[in-house]
Design a protein around this nucleic acid. Structure first.
Lengths: 352, 352
DNA sequence: TTGAAAGCGCTAACAT
DNA sequence: ATGTTAGCGCTTTCAA
């Protein structure tokens, strides 16, 4: 991408003085500030006459209320802080969409912070967001720095940890058990008689959910006397290309593998395309499974086995918990919602 | 996704009274509120002794500053409002990542609003965001409702419209010319001698950029006496599956097509996979091209021709404009940055 | 149904 | 190097 044209334009000349305040509307409409405020928030009793007068002048003036001042005075902030590791990994935008949809008809609005999978960055972003005194916090994962943990417990607002249920939540949790997801996939694989299994996934020091899936996976295999024969790890984002390359490397090293378990759909799809290119019969020669259940998989030549993790629903439910708190603080109760990951057998796992 | 386990937990019991204030820190450390404030913002001269004392007590108490109050008092809000049509379409998270990275080492923080491609929703979100008095606004596209347009011009803060440069910006713009992108792709297609061209894309009433690409495309074809032979439109999100289905329908209706132009990579990739499945020789029998340049394409069996739209860079540059304003308001100048979309010929366009 | 006063928690601007 | 004072623009609370 080269940028041929960078054209400085005329100097910024528009600033018409200061933003309008309630007082401006009050004076322009001949009504007290207090009444204007009431109209603009649909609070209390205001006569239709004054209401309309106020609304009209506010509109003509182009008044935009100052929520900063409003929030300070009322001690209420209609923001929900959402903290996620990344935007590049499709699963998080899906969660955000769930949150966003759930809040859509409410006064709450989500604000997103990104940690790049770094605990210290999470701590930083959390501090930053808490300083805006949001109505609730939704954040991915159960693993946090000690300081972050302290902030969460002391915040005095509802906290929902999402995606993962394997661990101790600060307050509410919505997610799936990744350990269980790994175990169940292992069982399916064993059930169809695969014996020499390869694993392909991220380097896992920071990706706790991938790690837990892997742990559950190996544990269930071990129970049946099976071990992962070989594995291949990668750094950075997922892509079809990476899936292809990793698969090529792994099979070159361990040609005897008859099953490959990928830690996400994107690299799984890459692996599948690679095997098909090589003329390998899937699943007769090599079986495949991945994780996430993204609709990317629906258009592949062969339907890849995966496990639906309910990301959209997780976002929705998490948002609903915050919403319920903000609507009725007194009767609020923390919740623990564990969704059941649904296995999608596709065509790359079953064999007869 | 069924949720088997919803467990209400113990009542929320933690609320330790009210959040701490500067005053609390001031009293606990025996230093005036003002000095505490200075320490916490690294402003003015404070002796190392008091600085450390203050930092220590703030930390032990677990003080989190109240940005609401700070913003009101200082009339400065370190937020950048970002308004995009969707999170489901991969291109927007990419833009957000560019913005986020560019702001990473600055005090600014982005806040995201989603419009679902609805102009009225955009207006609403814009109003909402402006009421937080952000330091700048970045929003997708040049088309807005009249009211939104008025808010933007009256806001008194820098506005950057992104993605598209075909039109009149309110203030700064960063993007590409989609008309030109469409024209250039048309020229390449004609250059390789394709004659019967099909188009596949979204229903375009709201997707202005897709529309402009299409207009540029047909215009350049027309100049050479060629018309789009047939077209197929779809609603909602893009997926491989949709690309397959649309391609199947289009070719059934118009079997004579020798080229397909897709309005994005995802449906393009679906189309490609479909053709390969059908044993159709690409590009000998049918040539293909898409738009976006996502790395999804890197792992396909055949490299799909596309046009890189520089989304990450667009985000970065837009954020830098806002940053430059916030760092030095006096010498700020609106900018118009038109990036050049890079054609990626791949293997589905060239033929000999 | 409307208005007046007080103050939310911080920082700018001025002392000292 | 530190402290004091006066608001920022709203909403809460109370009065009329």
């Amino acid at each position: 991408m080269s940028n041929d044209k960078i054209i400085p334009m005329k100097k910024d000349t528009k600033r018409t003085s200061r933003p309008l305040t309630l007082k401006d509307v009050s004076e322009a409409s001949g009504v007290s500030e207090m009444t204007v405020s009431r109209v603009l928030r649909n609070r209390g009793d205001v006569s239709d006459a004054t209401r309309e007068k106020v609304l009209k002048t506010a509109k003509t003036l182009g008044y935009v209320p100052n929520k900063i001042a409003g929030a300070l005075a009322s001690n209420r902030v209609n923001l929900v802080a959402v903290i996620i590791p990344s935007l590049s990994n499709m699963v998080f935008p899906e969660v955000l969409t769930g949150i966003s949809d759930a809040l859509n008809s409410s006064p709450l609005q989500s604000v997103v912070g990104v940690t790049n999978y770094k605990p210290e960055k999470e701590e930083e972003v959390l501090f930053e967001m808490l300083s805006w005194r949001p109505s609730g916090i939704i954040l991915a994962g159960l693993e946090h720095t000690d300081a972050a943990h302290a902030m969460l417990t002391e915040s005095g607002i509802p906290v929902v940890e999402i995606m993962d249920t394997d661990g101790d939540p600060v307050d509410s949790v919505v997610g799936i058990s990744h350990r269980r997801a790994g175990r169940e996939m292992a069982r399916q694989i064993l059930r169809y008689g695969y014996e020499s299994i390869g694993f392909l996934g991220t380097k896992m020091p920071m990706d706790h959910r991938a790690r837990k899936r892997f742990e559950g996976f190996t544990e269930a295999l071990a129970k049946n006397g099976v071990e992962v024969t070989d594995q291949e790890f990668y750094d950075g984002g997922s892509s079809l290309l990476k899936g292809r390359e990793m698969t090529a490397r792994l099979l070159e090293r361990s040609p005897g593998l008859d099953f490959l378990y990928f830690s996400n759909d994107m690299i799984g799809a890459g692996g599948l395309l690679y095997l098909l290119d090589q003329g390998i019969d899937v699943p007769a020669q090599i079986g495949l499974a991945a994780f996430n259940g993204t609709d990317l998989l629906d258009g592949l030549p062969v339907q890849l086995a995966t496990m639906e993790a309910g990301r959209y629903e997780i976002g929705q439910k998490a948002a609903e918990i915050i919403l319920s708190h903000s609507e009725d603080e007194k009767s609020f109760t923390s919740q623990r919602i564990e969704l059941t990951p649904q296995i999608q057998l596709g065509e790359t796992l079953k064999r007869t």
